[in-house]
Design a protein around this nucleic acid. Structure first.
Lengths: 138, 138
DNA sequence: GTAGTTGCAAAGTGTTTGCAGGCAG
DNA sequence: CTGCCTGCAAACACTTTGCAACTAC
């Protein structure tokens, strides 16, 4: 992903493109997600957004993230039942998960080749393939 | 996995082999998991175990599952943040996840080939690779 | 102006913990 | 007998919801 500092104006356009009314809070949440190349949890986002001045509630963060999810602006990464991460990179890709630190790192899908998956059950289609490589320090 | 009805005596031996005191409840929970080739949630196990007569509490199911996990008798499958499944098949393998029904199906690891994973960060080792193929009806 | 959004607090869900009584060895 | 195990209920962390006030357009 490009490590670009997304401007507020650009984010407003992106939100509109996804049929999301660009309220102040939503722009801030989008900014938190897109301006850094990190995988954030709802709680992490809440902290960042309220870093300077408390202006966004927990409920709004959750509602907004679910909205972004629904509008396919972000993607959920499920690696630990007690930690859901939101990934601003919606292109298909995979992850390293550091089980010691909880850190997530992207793996470009182009690099990875998966072959030999069995036939799908009849009438089914693939929605997506997630690969999680769990790593830890030696 | 062999679709074999595990006897209680056999399970007692298995538990002992894993340094687990084979109490009545633990044997029942192990039986629920191993006697069927399903991926069960804590709640599903609670239901099965108490199907005839209520004799096992929720807390014991959770404690026991965590114990089994720790002793590597079962494995956790994380596909949905609100549903943790316990998999009696500890051999490396992957999963189909039906996002409509929540159903999990095993994929034999021998069939699947993954190539092109990037170098690990320095000093790291792979603990395991999970592949989840999310499917839905067409 | 009006529909959609927000904040707060309360309710929900799945899981863990503290403690008194009970079972395994 | 002794220590580990169990059940219960309370505690917990995370997420969702109901509702009155507010904001985008």
């Amino acid at each position: 992903m490009k490590a670009r500092a997304y401007s507020r104006e650009h984010l407003v356009r992106v939100l509109r493109d996804h049929d999301i009314t660009p309220t102040h809070q939503r722009v801030e949440i989008a900014h938190a997600l897109f301006s850094r190349c990190e995988h954030l949890s709802a709680d992490g986002i809440l902290t960042i957004v309220n870093d300077r001045a408390a202006e966004t509630s927990k409920a709004t963060v959750y509602n907004t993230l679910n909205l972004f999810l629904d509008r396919k602006l972000v993607r959920e990464v499920i690696v630990d039942p007690s930690r859901v991460f939101y990934d601003p990179n919606t292109a298909p890709h995979h992850h390293f998960y550091n089980i010691d630190t909880g850190e997530l790192t992207d793996i470009d899908e182009a690099d990875v080749n998966i072959s030999g998956l069995p036939q799908l059950p009849r009438g089914m289609m693939v929605e997506g393939v997630d690969v999680i490589v769990r790593i830890r320090s030696r």
